[in-house]
């Protein structure tokens, strides 16, 4: 296959099928009880230097508790896929601004820094403008396609997007011709994250998971990840899974840890559970205007607490949960 053009960006993870298969060959198939605390899961499964993928859509069905724990355990030198990364990116970037080393050192960018309609994260922007983070440019679909390639166990996939743009020029994609029709295509390399973190509605103790609402790219992210941490709103029995296997979105053999974290997507939205806490997300954005104030804010909400449950107390999330549920279900007070 001829390559016509090639993006100048770095590939931060090995796209080779052979390397991935060697890993998955030794990955446990045992259907054991994988329930543990978030602190245990992060301690065991997130290593310095790992490339991390975060499930959900920035502020929707995100594994907030794990992101906080990554900061508390001061994990260093992480790579990240910025696949509409909004509040999740804001949290991880905060780790770079605390004077406690460098949480993030490389990013595949499709969408970062912004919090969609809410505005831009001032500190995440500082981190990305500082020169201390290396990045490669992508799009939401090309990143999703990269996860899909990995989930399929092939080293690349083609698409008809991104051609002719600076986005492509600063990506690591290549322009190729279809071997059958000769049509021009973009080829994107498989993306196997070292560790992925996904928040779901329900999981059994071994990691058979159910997701309600949109899956975004998570079915592929779960399968592409070398290590996978699941946080869930509720633990359910394995019998319940077996009563309706059609609903299983992620099978246990992809999963390494299961953590029960009710309210775990807070302050993000969790479909059919609770809406996003816009007031608290605004507090984050406000605190970011001044670095000292931001550090105090982070000390209070993340570094100064021992668990996500305490964050829910301090942020007012626990108290607001009934209201966020009413918002989610569009009920009047």
């Amino acid at each position: 296959m001829d390559t016509h053009e090639q993006g100048s960006g770095q590939i931060f993870s090995d796209p080779s099928t052979t390397a991935a298969r060697a890993w998955f060959q030794q990955k446990s198939r045992a259907m054991t009880d994988k329930v543990m605390t978030v602190a245990e899961a992060v301690g065991k499964l997130v290593d310095d230097g790992d490339y991390v993928a975060v499930g959900g859509f920035g502020g929707d069905r995100i594994p907030t508790s794990v992101l906080h724990e990554i900061l508390r355990q001061e994990k260093q030198d992480l790579g990240l896929s910025g696949h509409t990364a909004t509040h999740d990116f804001q949290v991880l970037c905060a780790g770079n601004q605390m004077g406690r080393g460098q949480t993030i050192s490389r990013v595949d960018i499709a969408y970062v820094i912004g919090l969609e309609a809410r505005g831009l994260s001032a500190q995440a922007r500082r981190v990305m403008e500082s020169g201390e983070v290396v990045f490669t440019e992508w799009t939401n679909y090309t990143l999703a396609l990269r996860f899909r390639a990995a989930a399929m166990g092939v080293p690349f996939l083609p698409g008809h997007t991104a051609l002719g743009t600076d986005t492509m020029r600063h990506s690591a994609a290549r322009k190729i011709s279809c071997p059958f029709t000769g049509e021009p295509l973009v080829a994107v390399p498989a993306l196997y994250p070292d560790v992925a973190v996904i928040h779901v509605h329900e999981s059994d103790p071994s990691g058979n998971c159910r997701i309600e609402g949109i899956a975004v790219a998570d079915l592929d992210v779960a399968r592409a990840a070398r290590k996978l941490i699941i946080t869930c709103e509720r633990l359910i029995d394995n019998d319940e899974i077996r009563s309706n296997p059609t609903r299983t979105a992620i099978p246990f053999y992809c999963v390494d840890a299961v953590c029960e974290v009710p309210g775990g997507s807070y302050p993000g939205n969790m479909p059919y559970e609770y809406y996003s806490d816009e007031e608290h997300l605004q507090q984050w954005l406000n605190a970011e205007r001044d670095l000292d104030e931001y550090r105090r804010f982070l000390d209070h909400h993340i570094y100064g607490v021992s668990s996500f449950e305490e964050y829910l107390e301090r942020s007012g999330g626990r108290e607001r949960m009934p209201e966020l549920r009413r918002l989610e279900f569009l009920e009047d007070e």
Binding site: I109, I113, E137, N140
Partner: peptide, 9 residues
């Protein structure tokens, strides 16, 4: 700024 998101696609 944030980047393409899905816009380029």
């Amino acid at each position: 700024f944030p980047g393409s998101g899905g816009a380029n696609d």
